[in-house]
């Protein structure tokens, strides 16, 4: 299955992903309309910042991992949280209704679940559904730097291998230069 991956080193902290996610999970599905809705729509992706001193702020896009096994599913007492055949962990459209007890909120190690009002006004646990109406989730599609990616797990690892190989190839040419120099000496 395709999943969301992040490259924190490319995150500028602009929060365009949060806006895109919020709009996608609104009734009107456009920015202007979403801003005027009541209850206000809620994001399911978050950009967090950790300050390591002046001008050293680490920015991290936080997305649901759709874990397997998923702590949120295990903790869900009414068994509203379930895994779809595509592998998406979600609490809407299943056999049981979410009762907003907040167990999943407490269990998620990444803090990716919010207890808030859904667009229909019902209090419930709101989390990433990987945008079922879209081919690419709104956050990944909106990210201006490619810090959030929607890829098959293999593909992300492949891209990482390519980047690492490129660095190593520089190191290799450097080593060759050094060797040539030492031979000449």
């Amino acid at each position: 299955m395709k999943r969301l991956f992040v490259r924190p080193e490319l995150c500028t902290g602009c929060k365009t992903c949060e806006i895109a996610c919020t709009v996608e999970h609104s009734k009107s599905k456009n920015l202007l309309g979403a801003m005027m809705e009541s209850p206000p729509p809620h994001t399911r992706v978050y950009v967090e910042a950790v300050s390591n001193g002046p001008f050293e702020i680490f920015k991290m896009p936080m997305t649901c991992r759709h874990c397997d096994p998923a702590p949120c599913m295990a903790a869900c007492i009414p068994q509203a949280m379930y895994r779809t055949v595509e592998g998406v962990v979600i609490n809407v459209g299943g056999a049981h209704a979410c009762i907003a007890c907040g167990m999943c909120v407490m269990m998620c190690p990444f803090g990716m679940i919010a207890r808030a009002l859904a667009p229909d006004g019902k209090m419930m646990a709101l989390k990433c559904d990987l945008c079922p109406d879209r081919s690419v989730p709104a956050c990944a599609a909106a990210c201006p730097t490619g810090a959030i990616l929607f890829l098959e797990g293999d593909e992300f690892a492949h891209q990482s291998r390519l980047r690492a190989s490129a660095i190593l190839s520089n190191a290799k040419s450097l080593r060759e230069t050094t060797m040539t120099q030492s031979l000449e000496e």
Binding site: L10, T12, G13, C14, K15, A49, I57, K59, P144, G146
Partner: peptide, 30 residues
């Protein structure tokens, strides 16, 4: 926090109504 990195680097322009335009500070895919 976090503050928008496009603003931090001066790479966001709102001088006309077609924008905002942002340049990818990493020059990767943006």
């Amino acid at each position: 926090l976090p503050q928008c990195g496009f603003g931090e680097t001066g790479l966001c322009c709102r001088h006309c109504l077609q924008g905002p335009c942002r340049i990818d500070p990493f020059g990767v895919s943006g």
